[in-house]
Design a protein around this nucleic acid. Structure first.
Lengths: 143, 143
DNA sequence: TTCATTAGTTAGTCAAACTAATTATCTGAG
DNA sequence: CTCAGATAATTAGTTTGACTAACTAATGAA
């Protein structure tokens, strides 16, 4: 049995991630949701309201980057900032009903692209990706 | 045995790719190579000289985007454009010796980040990623 | 009480993507 | 053989999303 070469695996992981994402950077015409916005909304929906710092960390961007992103979401009525009553410096960022609905629509539309590709795969390949994606998310979450 | 849910797999694949890449967008301080530049150089090294259109297609960007990227690479002495003698509209883009060396250095440094993560994994997980990344590249290459 | 730390924002910059329009060349239908 | 449409690449201009540096306001510990 051939031993996996970590360098080659790393190389392919890097290349595959780049290529798979390249076409998905642009905003979805229908919903107007870009990948970063959709991703941030998803975090707010699935992990609940949180501070800007927490959200920035979850999305692995700096606080100023997230500050701007949240400001845009707020302008579009997709999220809302409440003052944190315990710490007056802080904010609680929450998704609105509109944001939740648009997130679900955007997610559905964006994932349709992936689903179309995955639908053609044999079951074994899908199972392989199932396991691998869980692992990849674990790796991504590290430090 | 639980059946893999394509929607969930698609979702995780999307999220994982985003998160894994987010930190790698920035140029590497040592080599000055951004991910797109490194990636384009890699294509030139591994697939050989080619036209701008071909390179753009390989990298899944529009020709203007690639035109600018190649112009930058040329300014930095990493690639060179030759006129295509068969079609005077076209160019042949080639990596220089300096470009090749920097690509290898950049690749080594960039992949070190991944390798560090992968080094901690059990063999079975590495083998899983080995298979999965091959599959992902196949999927990404589809039209 | 005061001063370092922390949360968030603002200002300014940059890279990399896009579309639209332009230039130069090629090619095939009449 | 010619010229009208197609093609290769570039230029111009815009947008998005990332960053750092510097700021304000609030906190908390010595």
């Amino acid at each position: 049995m051939p031993k996996s070469n970590p360098l080659e695996v790393a190389d392919r992981l890097h290349s595959a991630a780049i290529r798979l994402l390249r076409r998905l950077r642009v905003a979805d015409d229908e919903t107007g949701l870009s990948a970063p916005k959709l991703s941030a909304l998803s975090v707010l929906v699935f992990a609940g309201p949180q501070s800007l710092k927490e959200l920035a960390r979850a999305e692995q961007v700096t606080p100023p980057t997230m500050s701007k992103l949240v400001a845009d979401l707020e302008t579009e009525g997709l999220a809302i900032k409440h003052a944190d009553h315990k710490d007056k410096r802080g904010v609680r960022i929450e998704v609105t009903a509109k944001g939740r609905a648009l997130m679900e629509e955007g997610r559905r539309r964006r994932l349709a692209l992936w689903r179309k590709k995955l639908a053609r795969l044999p079951k074994a390949d899908l199972a392989l990706l199932d396991d691998a994606t869980r692992l990849m998310l674990r790796i991504a979450a590290e430090d």
